[in-house]
Amino acid sequence: MTVQVLFFASLREAANTRELHLSLDSPVSARALANQLENEHVGLELRGALCAINEHYVHPDTLLSEGDTVAFFPPVSGG
């Protein structure tokens, strides 16, 4: 299945990209995807990051589905 991955703020800087398109062999959780991304991107540390799928916050153990957009970002500081 394919998913879109987005990074923001300091994680965008660490990943050196804002957006990735990935093909995954089997359904995985956001946490498993995060582990995979950390292994593939030296310097990317996702511990403490928040995850969202399709613009809604999710628990890291949520499974991804075909076509999902999953975003990883630091704790928010808007306002």
Binding site: A9, S10, A30, R31, A34, L46, R47, G48, A49, L50, C51, A52, Y57, V58, H59, P60, F72, P74, P75, V76, S77
Partner: peptide, 13 residues
């Protein structure tokens, strides 16, 4: 610096 944020919206990784 990136301003330290708030993670109360969800469970962080």
């Amino acid at each position: 610096t990136w301003v330290k944020g708030n993670s109360s919206a969800s469970t962080p990784l």
